[in-house]
Every structure is written in structure tokens, then in C-alpha cells.
């Protein structure tokens, strides 16, 4: 009953879910104007989400379609779910989708121009089937729903796993930053280098230095163990620390560069180890 009530009042707002492609009724503009006017196209990204994220999304005060998830504004969304219920009306079809994290109503407006062309994908949208939807989150009378542009059946069930992993990945990106951020990346590399150094001893784990001169081997070892930034070390520093002539270090560096074991960074005289992995 609740559902019917909701549906009627929603319909009286005409194209309240205007993004769904229904007709545009000029009089309805009032309720939509403020979010519409502030619309920022730079933030029109397509976000993969779980339904729980939609239900938990923060509603911007005084608005009914401006939400944030993980502190980031959302606009276009995509998600995958199983159809639990289908309700077909003349103007729209409403699906209740369940992805295991929650369920939400997804409303697709009927495009009156396309009524005659039978939609072959729609026949596959039956109860129990998995589908992917694209649309925007709306809130009306404290009830959330999605106005969908596209709903299509999932053909390869791996898409369900794929979507949930993608949603997790984007969630982590927004809450924790990009993977392997500069500081953690350098730390991990340093730890890795130290580990290799210990294991290396006299021989070199993973690096074949057999054909190089003694100086080249020392330069390489020094580059691996000396504390440095990601710019590596200048050949003068290496020469000074090893007590070797700069010209010898330069020659050794040329050999190592030619062998692909090191690479030049800020200039030709500054080198860093080219990690084997």
C-alpha cells in the first residue's frame, strides 16, 4: 500500500525523475531548479556502487537528489542486482533490485517514441535475473529510488563479482587514496631492497652481474643499499663513497646502463636501480 501511495504522489510530480527520459513538464521546474542550477558537469562521473552505499548515501540538506558517498558527490551511478519484483505501469517500469547488500527501487520511464520497437533485452528482465542499471539516485518522502536510463540483463555472471570488486576499489580509492601512494610505495621498495641485500651476500639474487667489472659490481651494490630518494644517486656521490675515481664510476655506470640494470633519472650522471620485477 505504501508503494502505491508513493507511486501516485510521485507521478503527480510529473517528471520528478526527469533524468529517466519521461516528458518534461515546465510547471515542475520549481522543485528541481536549485539542484539543476548548481549542476557541476565536472563531477558527472559514473560511479560503481553497492545498494547499501545508495541507502547510506548522505543527502544534501534541503535537496532531494544531491547525495554524497564517501564524501564525494555522486551523479551517474551503476550497479548490479537481482530483480526481486517488477511493476509495470503505462509510464514506467519499476524494478526492485537486490544485490545482497540491500534493495532499492529502480524506475525506468517509458520512452513513448520507442514504444513500438520491441526491446529484446527487456524480455530477459524477469524476477530472479541479474541485471545492471545506470541511473541517478533520488529521494522522495524519505524513500530512495533510482531513476534509471538503462537497465540490461547480465549475460556473464562474472560481471556480478566484477562489479562488486570495482565498487570496492572505487570506495577504497575515495577513502584511502590511490593504491601505493608515494610514501608507502617508497617504503615498500626500501624494505624490499634491504631484504634483497641481506639475502644477496656475495652473489646477487635475481641480478646477473657475472659479465661486469669489479667496479661495476661495487657501483651496483652501492646503488642498491645506499639510502636515496627515487632520483637515485649522482656518480660523484658514488665515487666519493666507494673511494673510486669518477671516470671509473662513469665507465661502470655506462656498462650497467647498457645492461639495463640501472637507469638515468634527473640527468645522465644520476642513476637508480631498475627493479627486476
Amino acid at each position: 500500500m505504501n508503494y502505491n501511495n508513493y507511486d501516485t504522489s510521485y507521478t503527480s510530480y510529473g517528471a520528478g525523475g526527469g533524468a529517466g527520459g519521461g516528458g518534461f513538464i515546465p510547471g515542475e521546474g520549481g522543485s528541481q531548479q536549485s539542484p539543476g542550477g548548481r549542476r557541476d558537469h565536472a563531477q558527472d562521473s559514473l560511479r560503481p556502487v553497492t545498494i547499501k552505499q545508495l541507502l547510506d548515501a548522505q543527502l544534501h540538506p534541503g535537496s532531494n537528489d544531491t547525495f554524497k558517498i564517501d564524501g564525494s558527490p555522486i551523479s551517474q551511478l551503476t550497479f548490479v542486482g537481482q530483480i526481486r519484483n517488477i511493476s509495470t505501469q503505462t509510464t514506467n517500469t519499476t524494478y526492485r533490485l537486490d544485490d545482497g547488500t540491500g534493495s532499492i527501487e529502480v524506475k525506468q520511464w517509458v520512452d513513448s517514441d520507442a514504444v513500438d520497437t520491441a526491446n529484446p533485452t527487456k524480455a530477459k528482465l524477469v524476477e530472479g535475473a541479474y541485471c545492471r542499471a545506470w541511473g541517478k539516485l533520488k529521494s522522495f518522502n524519505e524513500r530512495r529510488s533510482v531513476g534509471a536510463q538503462i537497465i540490461r540483463p547480465v549475460e556473464d555472471m562474472n560481471e556480478v563479482s566484477y562489479h562488486l570488486l570495482e565498487a570496492t576499489s572505487v570506495h577504497l580509492y575515495l577513502t584511502r587514496g590511490p593504491p601505493g601512494g608515494a610514501s608507502t610505495g617508497a617504503g615498500a621498495a626500501a624494505a624490499n631492497g634491504a631484504g634483497q641485500q641481506q639475502a644477496a651476500g656475495g652473489t646477487d639474487s635475481g641480478y646477473d652481474l657475472g659479465s661486469y667489472t669489479q667496479t661495476a659490481k661495487r657501483v651496483f651494490q652501492y646503488l642498491r643499499q645506499a639510502p636515496q630518494t627515487n632520483e637515485g644517486l649522482h656518480q660523484h656521490d658514488i665515487a666519493a663513497n666507494l673511494g673510486v675515481d669518477v671516470a671509473d664510476v662513469a665507465r661502470a655506470g655506462d656498462d650497467l646502463l647498457a645492461g639495463g640494470l640501472i637507469y638515468t633519472t634527473v640527468d645522465d650522471q644520476t642513476w637508480a636501480i631498475l627493479e627486476a620485477d
Binding site: V49, T50, K52, Q53, Q82, G100, T101, G128, Y130, D156, M157, N158, V160, S161, Y162, L164, L165, A167, T168, H171, L172
Partner: peptide
């Protein structure tokens, strides 16, 4: 309820979803 997922399922991906579900439960349950 049961849904047939066919014979072409990557269980590594599916199991990764289960791991993510419990490790990052805020977006799952």
C-alpha cells in the same frame, strides 16, 4: 532461493568478493 551461474565462473574473483565483503563491510553489510 537459488540461481544457476553456469559453468564459466571465475571462483578466484568470486572468492575475492567474499574477502572484500568482510574486510570492507561498511559497503556490504
Amino acid at each position: 532461493a537459488s540461481t544457476d551461474f553456469g559453468t564459466n565462473i571465475d571462483f578466484n574473483a568470486a572468492n575475492a568478493v567474499v574477502e572484500a565483503t568482510h574486510r570492507y563491510k561498511a559497503i556490504f553489510y
